[in-house]
Design a protein around this nucleic acid. Structure first.
Lengths: 249, 249
DNA sequence: TTTTAAAGTGTAAATTGTACACTTCAAGCT
DNA sequence: AGCTTGAAGTGTACAATTTACACTTTAAAA
């Protein structure tokens, strides 16, 4: 390497001088509007449901849409998603997780908008929908039609995410009442994974995990022998959860 | 329900009229600059590495930074991440996956910038770094210090993502040469998961999967008995890959 | 009291995971 | 050529987990 006269060390060789005005740098970046869209899953009548409203855009008249909103100035995305949930369902402290950003430039008819998809799981019994709002209600995940924007794609991705996550993390309990029977739990898994499971092995598995608390109570309103009601022991789970290490593909 | 005179059906009861001008709607949304940051993993000298440059901001002088850039007008995020990779490493068709958005308003000293983190896995041998650019080079993931922005956090999240993904999906092969010995493969897993594995059981597992093609070639340049070289059969994998169904938490 | 429908329960076989040690081979050295 | 070095390559017994499968019990409703 040839050292020019007067240059004494590496740092002086650098081509680009440091940027002192970070704000000015940012000002050169293109700006984009951001929204969050919540894929809110519920479980009812042994079916996985998703909460939708009618789109309020003329161009999507009669089509269905996820619950979403623009992200506010200086609002963290998680907060925005929680806000949307609160505004629509009245619920706070709902299970919520960021899943993916969707960025196709033509995904919104009004121009480019990025949207960050969030998955949320909530117990249908525990909340009162404000049905006034654009026919807000639950749709079976299996028979969706006429979705606005790229919302079908977003739901498909989030549903895949849920199928995977529910097997490695005890998310499912967020979809059930606080006290549930093993039959309800199994119905939930069967509905989400769209498979049939062996009842005895399913029970064996969950009892072996030892995260179910027997409440001593029994099901009510069933026209046959009632099942025991259990609660999930989130505390014990979080203390005990194993770290996972096994190659499998 | 009381029906007002003159109102004849449900659709006329609706409070909010449909929005005809989608563009105008979007214009009311706050605007944010977006960047992508690439966490580019490599594997060398039996260590997991990540590709970093010196920050070019005065405020982060001497600190290290991920490879990132602003997302251009109408650019899809995946394209932006691929562009960053191409510009910095000269490589196309690199494994790349979106991981997470980071949105803390104070994460950038110049003002609010959202960034979308991408993980990328590449074979260090296969590319030529343009070392002129801000001391671009590989850092052991285990001894990172002095990261700019929230890049330490981003790397931590992406490393966790990698540890999980590599166990359920054959990503690891992207980090190895096309032909590799089983020892190299095991070293890779041990480095990424930060655990020791039993050599015989490791072999048994991979041979049982039956995705390794024996090239008939042997290692070179080793001062002891050379191992066989294998290739991963991506084709067979994608034909055969099992759908995964086992509750485990 | 009988019927109905699901709750609740156990075992044997197969599969998978784990722990563990010696022989083989090529290269490098003398 | 023979010896040394160091990792490659290999198998088995045991434990743990997964799978397949059928009868008895229970409460409610008729």
């Amino acid at each position: 390497m040839i050292i020019e006269p007067g240059i004494v060390n590496d740092s002086e060789i650098k081509a680009t001088p440091l940027i002192t005005d970070a704000k000015k740098l940012i000002d050169s970046y293109p700006l984009v509007p951001i929204t969050v869209d919540c894929v809110i899953f519920g479980f009812d009548e042994n079916e996985l449901k998703v909460l939708l409203i009618r789109s309020d855009l003329e161009i999507f008249k009669e089509k269905w849409s996820l619950l979403g909103d623009a992200v506010k100035e200086n609002e963290v995305l998680d907060d925005a998603a929680n806000r949307v949930l609160r505004e629509r369902t009245g619920m706070d402290d709902v299970y919520l997780e960021q899943v993916k950003v969707f960025s196709q430039p033509d995904r919104h008819p009004g121009g480019r908008v990025l949207t960050v998809a969030y998955c949320s799981l909530l117990n249908i019994e525990h909340h009162q929908l404000k049905k006034m709002d654009n026919e807000l209600h639950w749709h079976s995940i299996k028979h969706l039609i006429d979705m606005a924007f790229d919302h079908q794609q977003i739901i498909d991705d989030c549903y895949g995410w849920l199928q995977k996550r529910i097997q490695e993390h005890p998310l499912g309990f967020n979809l059930l009442p606080e006290k549930f029977s093993l039959r309800e739990l199994q119905n939930l898994y069967e509905a989400i994974l769209d498979i049939k499971m062996d009842r005895r092995n399913f029970r064996k598995k969950f009892f072996a995990m030892d995260f179910l608390i027997d409440t001593g109570e029994l099901e009510d309103d069933v026209p046959h022998r009632p099942g025991k009601l259990y609660q999930f022991d989130f505390q014990k789970y979080s203390r005990t959860k194993k770290k996972w290490s096994g190659i499998d593909f």
